[in-house]
Each structure stands twice: as structure tokens, then as C-alpha cells.
Design a protein around this nucleic acid. Sequence first.
DNA 1: TCGCTATTGCGACAACAGTCGCATCAAGTG
DNA 2: CACTTGATGCGACTGTTGTCGCAATAGCGA
Lengths: 216, 216
Amino acid sequence: MTGVASKCNYSCVMTPDTPGTARPGGRTARNTAAVLQATLDELGEHGYAALTVERVAARSGVHKATVYRRWGGADGLVAAALEWSASRTWEPERTGSLYTDLLALARAVLHGFTEAPEGAVSAASVAAAFASPRVAEALRVFMVDRHERAAVVVAEAAARGEVPEGTDPAQVVRSAIAPVYYRLFVSREPVAPADLRLAARVTADAAARGAFVPGG
Amino acid sequence: MTGVASKCNYSCVMTPDTPGTARPGGRTARNTAAVLQATLDELGEHGYAALTVERVAARSGVHKATVYRRWGGADGLVAAALEWSASRTWEPERTGSLYTDLLALARAVLHGFTEAPEGAVSAASVAAAFASPRVAEALRVFMVDRHERAAVVVAEAAARGEVPEGTDPAQVVRSAIAPVYYRLFVSREPVAPADLRLAARVTADAAARGAFVPGG
DNA sequence: TCGCTATTGCGACAACAGTCGCATCAAGTG
DNA sequence: CACTTGATGCGACTGTTGTCGCAATAGCGA
């Protein structure tokens, strides 16, 4: 085992077990942890464009051929990192009203895509999804999970009578956060606090008026 | 001049002049046209992930080193193709009401990112913008231009009295089309006609109620 | 403790991307 | 028509990416 030892900068808690494989024992698990940690560190420091299997291999101390065998390439590393991120439980902030909940949600999205370390992984996933069907699928699963978790704020708004029964929670969530993604990745404009407030306000008002009830 | 001749599949109208350069004469212009056409064809057939300078060079009949010298790489080719697309005039469809105008706009966005050949260039630009500041800047300029052109439908709605004076046209446009981009590139969900209608409806209603007037 | 075998380490290898120096060519000029 | 010069063609070269076969290692069960 030559090579440089892993330089762990942040979020050093990495699940050391890999259940489901034929031999989930010590060394394989250690390699998995080291490689994923190195992937996170590399993404955080240099971004997805500079993510190289060779660098990850050198940093983790795992041989290059092993990384290729188990993850297939840079996209496989990103997909694995994203799946690991998805395993971390997440729950939306509760603030008392739908508007403020959606605003907090939009802020969380902005934060989660711009701040390290999750920001690097998330942005890398969006970028890698263009080139890798595997990453695209992992990203889709991740986003569906986030939609379902965020739906709670809509359900509670319905329970409070803020929005009518039958409101589609996922559509409300999408409407509130889509402008953030649009500015971040498509139009490449800066995202101002006023933009977040506008999206949350428009969405909350529309939801209150029943715009997100499928039938009516 | 060895190599394979350009195989032009679609949109063979390519601006043959390159004003501003020191020597915009015949051969340089022909090379520019051949290379950009080959780039479009490659993007349309194989996508950005498979876009290679060598393939473009072989297809266009221009030497590899020349392509590297003049465009710098695959990202430069995409940026040039995007700038060429931006030079094509575009104008939003006018249907008589803000809701139907926004719906047509959302449909045009979906079409423009999924149908060939513009779809391939547009999607490639979004993908390449993650790795190339040059493409990111070209994309930003392109989107700003589209926002300005699309703003006409909001101005006309204001003239008809559908929305209050002072409504920010660009914000209305963003609100209507952001969910399309979100589904296409982030959540990777299918985009249904009902989704377009919902986004247009929510945005048009909010605009009618004055939600997009900055001060009030 | 011992043997089986999945997994890994290792280095050589092929394929590819990108660069460089130089000879050649053609567009613009008088 | 000749001359100048910027752009191009050409091929060789370097560095990087990804693959392969084989020997060694270390889980895991007996």
C-alpha cells in the first residue's frame, strides 16, 4: 500500500460498512471509506471538472485499477458520493407558515448547492448527470426523496388551512425552488435574497388560491 | 486538404463571414463554417459527452491543430456554436393572452432543449458551462438575450391591462420557464403538458395580482 | 489455526488528447 | 503579377486516461 494517506478535511464520518456485497469485510470497507472521502475532498477543493480517478486513487491510497474496477470512473465516484449523501437524513425547517417554510427551503437549496462540502457534491452531480446515465438516475432518486421529505411543510400548511386539501405537495416544492436552480445552472445569474422571497411568495399565494390542486 | 468532407445533415446555412479578424478571407471563413457545422452535427448525433476535437476535425476536413489553435478545445467549439445560435433572431409567439403566451414560451423552451439540432447545442451548452467559464459566459449572454426578447409578451400584457404597470418582465419569464429547466436538468423528471400549463397558470395569475412589481 | 477465494496491488500496455516546430499555402496589397 | 504575411497542413512528440494479466494479500468459514 503505497501512495499518499487520505487528507480528511471535513465530514470525516463515513459509513464503514458496505452491506449486500459478498465480502463486506474490513479492507474493502476501509477502501470504500477512503475512496469516497477522497472523492468528497477532491470535489470540495477542485470541483467536478478536475475530478480524476488518478488523483482520488493517490489521495485515498487505493490503487488506480481498484478504483476503476469498483466504481468504473469519475462518474461512478460521483454517483456513489451522491448516494451516500442521500443516505444522510434531511428534514425541512419548520417556521410556522407556508411562505416562510418555502423561503427557508429555497435558502436551504441555495446553501446546499453553494456551500462545501455538500454543495460541491450536489453541483458535481448535476454536471455529471449530463454525461452519465448512472449519475442521472442517482440524482433523480435523490431529488424525489428530497421532494417527499419537503412535502411535509405543504401537508402541515394544509392541516393549518393555509392551502386547500388535495394540493400537490411536490409541485409546490418544485415551484418554489425551480427558480433557484434556474439561476444557478442555466441563466448563470446571481441569486439574490429578493429572488428567493419572490419565488416563495408567488408559490405560497398560488397554493393558497388552490392552483396546485390537480383537479381544480 | 485531406480528411473526410463535411457531412451536413441539417441547418446547413452557416454564416460564411467572420468579421473583426485580421484576415476574414475565403479559406478561413470556409474552415469556420465547416468546423461549426461539424460541431453541430456531432452534437446532434452523439451529444456533448462524445464531442471530440479529433472527430470534429476529421468530419470537417480541417486539421486538428488548426481547430485547437482557433477554438482551444471542445468547450470553445460549444461556445462558438452557442454564439452562432444566439445570432439567429428569435421572437416569442403571440397568442393574445399572457397565460397562453407563457404557455407557448414554456413549450418553446422544452422544444428548444429536446429537439435537434438546437436542442443538442443548448443542452450541450448547459452541460459544458459547468466545466468551462467561457461557455458559462456565452450561456449567460444567450439567456439574457432570450429574456429580453421574451419580455415583449409581458409588455403587451401590461398594455392590455392584464398585469399592472411596473411588472418585471424578466422575472415573469423566469418564473414560467424555470420549472421546465428544473425537470429537464435537475430532477430529471419527464415534462408533461400539464406541468407547462401549471407553471404558466401560476405565473400569469401571480403577475395579474401584481406579484412581480418590485416595489409593491 | 488453516485453507479457500474474492479482492487488491502492481506494472506494463494501448488509446487518446493536446502541443510544437516547420514547411506550405493563399488572401490581401501595391 | 509579384510580394508579404497570417493562417493552415503536417507529423512527431509528450502526458494522461483507462485496461489487462498475474501474483500476493487478507477476509471468512471450517
